[in-house]
Design a protein around this nucleic acid. Structure first.
Length: 424
RNA sequence: GUGCCUGUAGCUUAAUGGCAGAGCACUGGACUGUGGAUCCAGAUGUUGCGGGUUCGAGCCCCGUCAGGCACCCCA
């Protein structure tokens, strides 16, 4: 380990194996989003600091963004999230975009945080947003997109829950308790309900300025699993969710608040039911954000899912199908008694027939070449040795079936195509 | 950004302050035209990095880097 240059802290290498996992997640995200008619888009990876300064939440911008001065002295930031870019892009074309706007995206984001399990400094995130519709059914659709993804990767309602709450409901309830004035601090208090011990939490409540009376009210509030029934919006949300078939995943949780300042209504958060990992996704309704970046008011709802936690969850529950990095279908072996050009010619012939063909680049012992095919999961080996060459044929070895057959040169492509159709 | 824990071969790991070992993987052979098993043999380390204490440091101390846990925040 001498003088090896290290990767940047919190950045990950994607070796072919990890790339398979990422692409598998991506493929399912795309399928889930497209099943609901969402269109793929992307924003720039670099944005002005100004874009985030207005809304995202102080900590995220001031402490957790990669910010630098470009050569012209402008403050530029590596995007820590996508929603502000989305709001900016939509605001710029507000008059010409047909509504509703259903968009999704998957790309890299950066946050300057201390890395931990499930959290890195550079990560990929799936964003799904629906703009121009302000209804509980729209909120439920977003939840259904997320659940559809879970189902596509094989995660069930017994493994995953999708928690929801409503900021408007909480606003009302806090106002009733006379806590509207320091709402931000109380939200933060609520957020820590499950984390702090009972006495520590109550002490913290006192520090925030919550009176003993208010504390009792707050505790009752947070213990009330049926609180959502007092909100017409929540009721309609659950109703629509049930119509969409995602009822088993949904779970009301009054302690789900979400940190981002721009949420104005329903907020969502998905977790594994064993609570081993941090949140799988987070999202919510943001009806004022587009207006705040200079557009006309345009209601929106969306969520974001990072690749790290869902990757860990999918692996823990063994949902990742066995994938192999090599795309090769046929390995053309090489024999030292004949010219390498013969192997190249055969490989070219097979490729011309539409097959994915890899050529073994040296005349190693045959068992070595076959072992290479084996460890890479290559199904077929094409053997063109002195015997076959003399007879104008090729031996095809099926490594999965452990059989081999010799074919006339002209019949090889068809034989391989047929063989590939029979999955082993 | 704060506190705590960890860092030994490619991977998993062992070693009361006293010769750095093992398993898996790898390489070669048994078997030079036939892969997953078996057997035999072999290679592999500045013990993350830098300093200090000591006759002697993988082990103790300081610093640093990286990872993990709890804060903070959040995907």
């Amino acid at each position: 380990m001498k003088n090896k240059i290290q990767a940047v802290k919190g950045a990950r290498d994607f070796y072919p194996e990890q790339m398979l996992l990422r692409n598998w997640l991506y493929a399912n995200m795309r399928s889930a989003a497209q099943a609901f008619g969402y269109q793929e888009y992307d924003g720039p990876f670099l944005e002005t600091l100004e874009l985030y300064a207005a809304k995202s939440g102080d900590e995220l911008v001031k402490e957790q963004s990669f910010v630098f001065n470009d050569r012209g002295g402008e403050k530029v930031t590596l995007r820590p999230e996508l929603t502000p870019s989305l709001a900016r892009m939509v605001a710029a074309r507000q008059r010409q975009l047909p509504r509703p706007i259903r968009w999704w995206s998957f790309g890299p984001f950066w946050r300057y945080e201390r890395p931990q399990k499930g959290r890195s400094r550079e990560f990929f995130q799936w964003n799904v947003d629906l703009l121009g519709v302000e209804s509980p059914a729209a909120d439920a659709e977003l939840a259904a997109v997320a659940v559809t993804f879970f189902q596509m990767v094989g995660l069930t309602a017994s493994e995953i829950k999708l928690q929801f709450n409503d900021r408007r409901l909480m606003d009302e309830q806090l106002a009733t308790l006379g806590l509207a004035a320091n709402k931000t601090a109380v939200f933060r208090l609520i957020d820590r309900r499950g984390k702090l011990g009972a006495t520590a939490w109550e002490q913290y409540a006192g520090e925030v300025g919550v009176t003993p009376e208010q504390l009792n009210g707050l505790k009752a509030l947070l213990a009330n699993a049926d609180l959502w029934r007092q909100s017409e919006g929540c009721q309609a949300f659950v109703e629509a969710g049930q119509a969409l078939g995602i009822g088993p995943f949904l779970e009301f949780d009054p302690t789900v608040i979400r940190g981002l300042d721009y949420y104005t209504g329903i907020v969502l958060e998905a977790r594994d039911r064993e609570s081993e990992f941090r949140a799988i996704l987070g999202g919510g309704r943001y009806d004022d954000l587009v207006g705040d970046v200079g557009g006309d008011r345009l209601p929106g709802m969306g969520f974001a899912m990072g690749d790290v936690v869902i990757g860990l969850v999918a692996q823990k529950y063994q949902k990742v199908p066995p994938l192999r990095p090599s795309p090769t279908q046929v390995l053309v072996a090489q024999f030292d008694q004949i010219s390498p050009a013969e192997a190249l010619r055969l490989a070219a012939q097979l490729r011309a027939g539409g097959l994915r063909v890899e050529w073994y680049p040296e005349t190693a012992k045959l068992d070595r070449q076959l072992k290479y095919a084996d460890v890479n999961g290559i199904r077929f080996a094409a053997l063109l040795g002195p015997d076959e060459l003399a007879q104008g044929c090729v031996t095809i070895k099926d490594l999965a079936a452990r059989t081999q057959t010799t074919y006339a040169r002209a019949a090889v492509v068809d034989a391989l195509r047929q063989g590939l159709e029979s999955q082993m």
